[in-house]
Design a protein around this nucleic acid. Sequence first.
DNA 1: ACGTGTCTTGACCATTTGATCAAGAATGAA
DNA 2: TTCATTCTTGATCAAATGGTCAAGACACGT
Lengths: 204, 204
Amino acid sequence: MKSKAKPAAKTRIQSENQDLILKAALDVFSTYGYRGATVDQIASKCGLSKPNLLYYFRRKEDIYTAVLEHTLTEWLTPLRMLEVSNDPITELTHYIVAKLEMSQRNPAASRLFANEILHGAPHIKKFLNGPLKDLVEAKAAVIKDWITAGKIKPVDPHHFIFSIWAVTQHYADFAVQVEALMGPKLDPEKTQKAVLGILLNGLK
Amino acid sequence: MKSKAKPAAKTRIQSENQDLILKAALDVFSTYGYRGATVDQIASKCGLSKPNLLYYFRRKEDIYTAVLEHTLTEWLTPLRMLEVSNDPITELTHYIVAKLEMSQRNPAASRLFANEILHGAPHIKKFLNGPLKDLVEAKAAVIKDWITAGKIKPVDPHHFIFSIWAVTQHYADFAVQVEALMGPKLDPEKTQKAVLGILLNGLK
DNA sequence: ACGTGTCTTGACCATTTGATCAAGAATGAA
DNA sequence: TTCATTCTTGATCAAATGGTCAAGACACGT
């Protein structure tokens, strides 16, 4: 008998399959929502049988929270990179571009969060009130510093951050609508330039 | 036998109950999404039995599309009011304020649409490609006129409209997040002032 | 009060779906 | 190879849920 007590070390097969599952689950949950997604869908999407999937995650909700947490870190990365600097516009431009590119590269993640928050954020309330709030406060302080230093025109830092989120995520969350109204032509570079102008021109 | 052939005139009880149902359904669908909502929930929320509710709307989907269409008109009203005028900033201010107030007064409607579009807009594709597209084109033309007349600085009209939608609806769709980060204090007037500044200062 | 058509509901059905389990197959360290 | 552990799955269950139906309650014009 192995004396593996606590850590429950991962087998090769374990990590491979959990990875498969999380990828498929992100797809399915982001498309159909938590209630709309079925374990069968996820299972067949990653080529596992349903009981096998439930061998790795005992409950549907476990899969969901795993996907959610797995994506949270990545989600915050761009905001973390916002630092005090001599050129706020450059700094904010980087942030907005990063956010926008993330929305375009991984819209499923954006929709997963949108859906979660839209329905009251039952699984990530703690995240919102804890880590996210701390991070936002820190970054709001950075923006406030820029304002008091006279480097940008006055804005409410919190509402400005919300606006950046709203606009950038809009292109992932409402992609269907954007495509319906702009046609599939939608040039990412044009979008980027337009969004940067709209959000930043008021600060100059 | 009454010779009522086509119009299927509405009884008093009919219109009363349909109204009850639509109100309750908006609440339930916007909170839990289409798949997450149950007919039982809607029925008990408006004090009707499930079979009775299904007497007025034979399928769950019928209730959903009814609520959706019932809200579409109201949803477009603010955008329709955007007219050419000598003072674009005033005009846009009115629009943004109207949008923002609608988000605050009827967040359920906003969330209903957000959820529908988030999941691919299966029920309102025609609306997006038809009436909405026409309206957006018309209003984009208005904004373009302002620009060529030199009354506001250049912006991509479509992306600007998207940004207005994104930011204003954010306060309804992501209310949980906003509250978590700002506390329940959130002053609507401050929000309004901040949003107006962020969206319009760049045009002046 | 009468009677027709409208409204309401308890009981019931079929399907979907999350979850379980026992038994068998594959894996990998010795 | 051996064999304990890990992995896989067909069969199955219980609960939730959309929807039906026949029978009865009610509304309302006459």
